[in-house]
Design a protein around this nucleic acid. Structure first.
Lengths: 173, 173
DNA sequence: GGCGGGACAGTACACAATGGATCGTCGAAA
DNA sequence: TTTCGACGATCCATTGTGTACTGTCCCGCC
């Protein structure tokens, strides 16, 4: 029952996880993350490019030969794999929710009526688009035989469906 | 259609929203936020105590007479109400999701089998508890005649229900 | 050829959010 | 009356977000 602290934050761990598939540059990691994890795990370039040198310092990744545009390939090391495995066995942090639409709805009494309608419209648009994206991504993952990836993406699908159905029942005025 | 930038971040706006119900100290704001917004909007003490002086500097809240334990009551000012109204009319930021359980599931192939079962168990526990809390809070809000508050809390209810049902179908191995 | 403009890799920085440690004050139990 | 625990508040290190910027490469075009 490995419980030793991996010293990884979730972002670093996600990068190490992705690197299990092979060496990638920062840009490639960004797009892989967006494609495979994006719908349920946001990650920004700033974070990626901050963690990568830190991971290298820790010896968890190794640098390859710089490519075009100074792009820098990274590959995971044996100790990186060990750190990732340790991270997997750590207890999950309580999942946190910060939903800006819901926050506004909570103060619905202070809205003008048309404001609320606009809010719902924008929210429905966002969730519909995100739902479509998540569905596509899940289909791709399934087609690749990536059962776990598809399952994870399905979480996002369920989330957006729930949000959409909640929106339909939200108080109009 | 007021689109002028309110200059408020979501946390500051939430505080101003809560202060529409009357003057409160930092501690009272914390508990009010936890009770009424907690299930769909996490907020930490650090944030609250950082925003409050900033809000006072901006003239959006006024300080009352210090109470016991140096507790400091704040009341919203007219310009604070205006700033809040402006914030309400701003476009919502894209809602972002960072779900640590799902992230681990995405790397399910790299888990040991019993690790995955443990993960699901812990996640189910968390969501069940959160679901119960959200339900209670929604009931309280409804009993208070706070339709919007109840609707907002119902979002959390739907979310946790969706998460729980997703967990049941998640790949076991 | 050479000179645009645009896409892309990476950097920089300011601001926001999180979590944990700490400190003084107050109330109540021992 | 002392001590202990809860509470209000503060601080700080780390993490996350958003935007603007640098340089480089590609491609079409004259």
């Amino acid at each position: 029952m490995g419980m030793a602290d991996s010293g990884l934050n979730a972002t670093a761990a996600a990068l190490l996880g992705l690197l299990h598939e092979g060496p990638m540059t920062g840009g490639q990691l960004m797009s892989a993350a967006e494609r495979k994890l994006g719908p349920f795990w946001t990650m920004t370039r700033s974070q990626v490019y901050r963690e990568l040198p830190a991971l290298a310092d820790a010896g968890y990744v190794r640098l390859g030969k710089p490519g075009p545009r100074a792009s820098q390939p990274y590959s995971i090391s044996a100790s990186g794999k060990r750190a990732f495995a340790r991270w997997l066995s750590e207890p999950v942090t309580r999942d946190q929710m910060r939903n800006p639409v819901t926050l506004r709805v909570a103060f619905g009494k202070l809205h003008g009526r048309d404001q609320l309608a606009e809010l719902y419209g924008a929210a429905e648009k966002q969730h519909s688009e995100a739902l479509a994206e998540a569905r596509d991504a899940a289909k791709d993952a399934a087609a690749d035989g990536d059962t776990y990836g598809a399952a994870a993406l399905n979480f996002a699908v369920q989330y957006h469906k729930a949000a959409l159905s909640w929106l339909k029942s939200a108080p109009r005025a």
